[in-house]
Simulated assay, not measured.
Amino acid sequence: MNDAYKRTVSIASAPNLRDLGGIPIENGNIKRGLLYRSASLSSLTDTDQGWFSTLGIGTVYDFRTAAEAVESPDRLPTGSDRISLDVLADASASIAASVGQLTTDPQAFVASLTDGQAEHLFEDSYRDFVRMPSALTAYRSFFLSLIDEDRHGAALFHCTTGKDRTGWAAASLLTLLGVNEADVYDDYLQTNTDLLPALEHVLQNAESHGVERETLMPVLGVRESYLAAAFEQMREQFGSINEYARDGLGLTSEQLHRLRTNLT
């Protein structure tokens, strides 16, 4: 898939924002302008709210924890409704929900992330996105809301950096829609291009506290092994993506058909 740059939406205060439309499926492409993914919208400026409004986004799905959302609430323009879907509500701790600590205490955050520990923690978090009850509840609600006839406008989903909880939401949805594996990974890895430049201030802050930026790359970026861990958990626990949707998320064949019809 070589048109990822065409799907990226350049709004400075809304990093890692892109349209899932245009990604190819067997008999065409996912429809454009219906579904977007991004990082947190807590820094959306007044000026950029105007640009954001032109996307016609009526519903924003927030996968962050309650604590994350309270600390950095979304700044949405009038006409966009926010729905909280706490993927990690059942987790006592998760590295995916702790990235924000990099801005306050980077040394403490990276203290235990040596010798590949970061990669291991992220891979385990991605397994939680598949097996944790709160994650199953959140993603079920997300998919069902996408086919809710009372929902208006386009939809956007995000977490803090738009790469992990958001990454699995996108990857599982794209797979259910019939996107091939290579293109699913292409969209996932596009975060390394779209997000990292916006996190330069985080890297510089960490460096000012004696933390080498290379140490943070497994934390601030995404890696194939992270998403692979989620898919592996899905196959181990459910067998296939359709069985994950049916037995894990409780979606019916009719609901899956409507999801595919609405978006493709």
Rank of each mutant, 00 (worst) to 15 (best):
H158W: 05
T103K: 14
I83T: 08
T161C: 02
A108V: 09
A170G: 10
E119R: 02
L88F: 15
L195N: 09
V130N: 09
Y139I: 10
P77K: 06
I147F: 05
Y185W: 10
L177I: 07
E68T: 07
A135R: 09
T114P: 00
L102T: 11
D164Q: 06
I147R: 05
I95K: 00
C159W: 01
E149D: 15
Q190H: 11
N180F: 01
D105I: 05
H158V: 06
L136M: 12
A111C: 04
F109H: 09
S125K: 03
T191Y: 03
G100R: 14
G100C: 04
R75A: 14
E123Y: 02
I83R: 12
T166M: 04
R151G: 05
S80M: 06
T161S: 06
A91F: 08
K163P: 00
A138W: 11
F129E: 06
A93S: 15
H120G: 00
H152F: 04
L195W: 10
N192P: 03
A93W: 12
V130C: 06
L76Y: 10
G167N: 05
L76K: 08
S172I: 12
A135T: 06
R151K: 15
Y139W: 09
G100K: 12
R127L: 07
V179K: 12
A198P: 13
L121V: 00
R64S: 13
T65C: 07
L121F: 02
A155V: 03
G167R: 02
R82Y: 11
E68W: 07
D186I: 03
L113G: 02
F142W: 12
T161A: 13
P73D: 14
A171Y: 00
T166C: 09
L176I: 14
P133S: 07
T114L: 03
V87L: 11
Y185V: 11
F129W: 11
L102C: 11
Q117V: 07
T65Q: 12
R75F: 01
D105E: 14
D187F: 00
S84T: 09
A155P: 02
D74N: 14
T166H: 05
G116W: 00
A108N: 13
A198H: 15
R127G: 04
L113D: 08
L174F: 01
M132T: 06
S134W: 14
L121T: 00
D148G: 04
V110N: 07
G167W: 01
L88V: 04
S141M: 05
D186N: 13
L102P: 10
G167Q: 04
D150V: 02
V99K: 03
F129S: 05
